[in-house]
Design a protein around this nucleic acid. Structure first.
Lengths: 202, 202
DNA sequence: GTCTATAGGCCGATAGAC
DNA sequence: GTCTATCGGCCTATAGAC
């Protein structure tokens, strides 16, 4: 991990340092100087590779957004019933107290005010919802869930529960409320569905 | 509204201005200077009434947290079935694109790092969850919901859906995903419960 | 209570030498 | 590519006059 960082090119180190700082402190709370120190790069070096704070943040946000999509696809494109895949998404390993590196940006006034910075955030969360809606639709087609459910609504509820779970966990300083929220959602989504799907999947 | 602001004492105006700025820009993004300008108060005046940024923010956060509790109680302490009250909480009027003034602070590194600033946030969200859990328990006692549900988990899911709904709405720039998430949750919580409770409530 | 003055340091960026 | 120097302005206070 650290050796990987040390062997990176300067632009790479700058982007990775920016990703970390954006995650922890947001755009408003991240200064070029802090990025340079974290990346071990000088002032002139940073401005040689990137036009400024915004351009650097854009590169960092794009990468983080792409990673979110890839991670979601790994879990949602896996084996099993629709319920099982949604469960896998919800129970996936997470650094709960750090929150979501993409969702976090949504609370930053300067990210929201800048269309270029907001675009990757919007897209990543939109794709995630669409992908989840597809899985819910599959489950509906297979009769896993009650027929009254709207796939896009359930997808929004699933993503919102995760994003809001981070809020509750950070408020408390413990991941417990996140886990509660997820278990509550699974209980509402689940029992009958899981059983119904078993014959086909397992 | 504005006349009310203008007739307020200087400390009051400072607190209200801080509340607005904290909501929009967070603690990290809010400067004493910006507060002074928004409140129409001078530098010396602000530091006469408050020791500094942290003390001012503490007063503002406490008030916002208290308001959250009062607003929740208004809706959750009302008439109707448990389902109806949770529905009322979820459908309550909200400035969705502005997000939650309390939940927002959870993404601020300096609020989370400062126990004094975090405490009111933690307490407000904790009380909200407890209050909702009580309502769910009532619903369970009256047979409104499926017996398998855990009140604290469902309460966490409800609050998380709202908090996460804000994230989705702000990412998109539209309240639509918030409404979807809420409708999805109501669909999961609901139909049978709503019908079962109707005889008593309506 | 409110004002102005002052402080040392960071903010985000630009310029130009090496 | 990376460095140092420099910029005007804001950050968060503090000091002391009025």
């Amino acid at each position: 991990m650290y050796s990987a960082v040390m062997s990176m090119s300067t632009p790479e180190r700058l982007i990775e340092a920016t990703r970390e700082l954006l995650w922890e402190r947001g755009y408003v709370g991240t200064s070029p100087k802090a990025v340079q120190q974290a990346a071990g790069a000088g002032q002139g070096s940073m401005y040689h590779h990137f036009a400024g704070k915004q351009e650097l943040a854009l590169a960092a946000i794009r990468r983080t957004a792409d990673e979110l999509g890839a991670a979601a696809e790994t879990v949602l494109g896996g084996e099993g019933s629709a319920y099982a895949r949604i469960e896998a998404y919800l129970l996936r390993e997470r650094d709960v107290l750090r929150g979501c590196p993409v969702g976090r940006l949504t609370m930053d006034p300067e990210v929201i005010a800048d269309p270029a910075l907001r675009a990757p955030v919007d897209e990543a969360l939109g794709l995630l919802r669409a992908r989840l809606a597809g899985v819910v639709q599959e489950g509906l087609d297979r009769g896993e869930f009650s027929g009254a459910l709207d796939p896009e609504e359930i997808a929004a509820t699933v993503v919102a529960t995760v994003q809001g779970g981070y809020v509750l966990a950070r408020a408390t300083g413990s991941r417990a409320p996140f886990d509660s929220a997820v278990r509550g959602l699974l209980a509402l989504l689940g029992p009958r569905a899981a059983v119904a799907a078993t014959p086909t999947a397992l």
